[in-house]
Write a protein that binds this DNA or RNA. Structure first.
Length: 440
RNA sequence: GGAAAAGUGGCCGAGAGGCUUAAGGCGGCACCCUGCUAAGGUGUUGUGUGGGGUUACCUGCACCGUGGGUUCAAAUCCCACCUUUUCCGCCA
């Protein structure tokens, strides 16, 4: 395995202790970890980490011993000086010791940095229950809700409907920015806003989430905490001359809220939800989903984020996924739930359910929510911990998040699925108090 | 953007090159005393990383905003940066 390093200068110190994967677990179960990692892709291996780790520990032991010696000798010098003795000889001796220590420390720092960088580039270990596969074709549909919408007329794609009804001004969006930027207007803008408010109200009033409105730009340390950096730099928009990136999802700022902190177990589980625009360069997506609202550089999303104890994380993950499903059910949109296989889950995730909504123009289901469990992977990177009540030990939390839901895609699904023979679009009942109109 | 001051454990706060193994207090935990409560007494109290036993145990090293430097020796001196507070400027 060859790893191309991207050296990230982490200014925020609180992450210096964080390891991406538990080096102790790696040391103790190398075969098991390798086997699980290779389920993602045979390229992955922790062998290099182990080699560096062994050398690193050797050096540290040596350096520690020398430091202990210097400490003792220096104290001795202090005493001798107080007694008026001559200390020239011993001072010279300890000075040489200092040179040795410095050399070892340099070596140790180098190895620390190297190990850290290798670890930063290794993905999370898939959960045992994540189906093994080699491509998205190996994902498994586990349930469906509703039926694909049937029409007794020729249904239109949302991009045509949006243009006809002046809901989205695609051309002028491009003029203002670039291709794949959209300009909502009139009832279109209102519908988008209605969907955002509906989702936030549901999560906060019925499901117990705290509403968060985070910054839309985040620094490199924050981006590293959730796993966007160092490996996926090219997918993000970066501000010139600033250590700031436009967030690709609210997951980034919200998950990092307690980075470097130790929570009480009483604080868990923590439920947070946030609306933010999401900015993605969509590098490598040229030619995919080129029309309409499905794949754009800036889109709106309401995200759900949870911190839990390791014990509760599988159950909380299921519950969060249900919270996402509920949104689709309330809106009356047909969807299915898919278990992503080891080749398709995200870099930082160990398990992931996708919710896919029926989209008539595609004649298939299209991802509208991705609900992932990250185990302690993000918590390690961001150094988010809690104190276990029973044992008094400090442990890493588990982080979970999912879309609840992607707003633009919800918009498209509503427009397409609820279009009528007479050309109107019926607004779902639950949205009407937010839109102020019942059809377009 | 300019000027000044400050960043020490969960919190407050002392410390100004070696007697710091970071005082003292608050809070937390355990036990003792007391008919209950209150008060009192005693002890304990962070994080990371390495080593040895390989369950709760023992031990080394590091950590006083961050990173460098000076020194035999740095919380303490020097430099840069970050953050906070106050004042000035600008501004929705």
């Amino acid at each position: 395995m060859t790893i191309v390093y991207t050296i990230i200068n982490l200014q925020k110190d609180y992450r210096k202790e964080g390891n991406m994967l538990d080096i102790k677990i790696i040391r103790e179960n190398p075969e098991k970890i390798n086997e699980l990692l290779k389920r993602r892709n045979p390229q992955w291996s922790i062998d290099e980490v182990l080699e560096i780790d062994e050398e690193r520990r050797k050096i540290q032991t040596q350096a520690d011993e020398l430091r202990a010696k210097r400490k003792n000798e220096s104290q001795k010098i202090g005493m001798m000086k107080k007694n008026g003795e001559n200390t020239d000889a011993i001072q010279e001796e300890v000075r040489e010791l200092g040179d040795e220590i410095k050399a070892l420390e340099e070596k140790q720092n180098e190895l620390d940095a190297k190990q850290k960088n290798v670890l930063l580039h290794i993905p999370n270990i898939p959960d045992e229950t994540t189906p093994v596969g080699t491509s998205e074709d190996d994902n498994i549909v586990v349930s469906t809700w509703g039926e694909p919408t049937k029409f007794d007329f020729e249904p239109k794609a949302h991009w045509d409907l949006c243009e006809e009804k002046n809901l989205v001004d695609f051309e002028r969006g491009v003029k203002l920015s670039q291709s794949r930027f959209t300009l909502y207007r009139g009832k279109g803008a209102r519908l988008e806003r209605a969907i955002i408010n509906f989702f936030l109200d549901q999560h906060t009033e019925n499901e117990g989430y705290e509403e968060i409105l985070p910054p839309f730009m985040a620094n490199a340390a924050t981006m590293t905490g959730t796993g966007q950096l160092p490996k996926f730099k090219e997918d993000m928009y970066k501000c010139e001359n600033e250590d700031l990136y436009l967030i690709p999802t609210a997951e980034v700022p919200v998950t990092n809220i307690y980075a470097g902190e130790i929570l009480s177990e009483d604080d868990l589980p923590k439920y947070m939800t946030a609306y933010t625009p999401c900015f993605r360069r969509e590098a490598g997506s040229a030619g995919k989903d080129t029309r309409g609202l499905i794949r754009v550089h800036q889109f709106n999303k309401v995200e759900m984020v949870k911190y839990t104890t390791p014990e509760n994380s599988p159950a909380e993950h299921e519950k969060l996924t249900q919270d996402g499903e509920r949104m689709l059910q309330l809106l009356g949109l047909p969807y299915r739930k898919v278990a992503l296989c080891t080749a398709d889950i995200g870099f930082s995730a160990n398990k992931c359910w996708d919710l896919e909504v029926w989209l008539p123009s595609y004649n298939t289901y299209k991802e509208i929510s991705s609900c992932s469990n990250y185990g302690d992977y993000q918590a390690r990177r961001a150094n988010i911990r809690y104190k276990d009540k029973a044992t008094g030990k400090i442990r890493f939390v588990h982080t979970i998040n999912g879309s609840g839901l992607a707003v633009g895609r919800t918009f498209a699904a509503i427009v397409e699925n609820f279009q009528q023979a007479d050309g109107t679009i019926i607004i779902p009942e639950v949205l009407r108090k937010y839109t102020g109109f019942d059809k377009i």
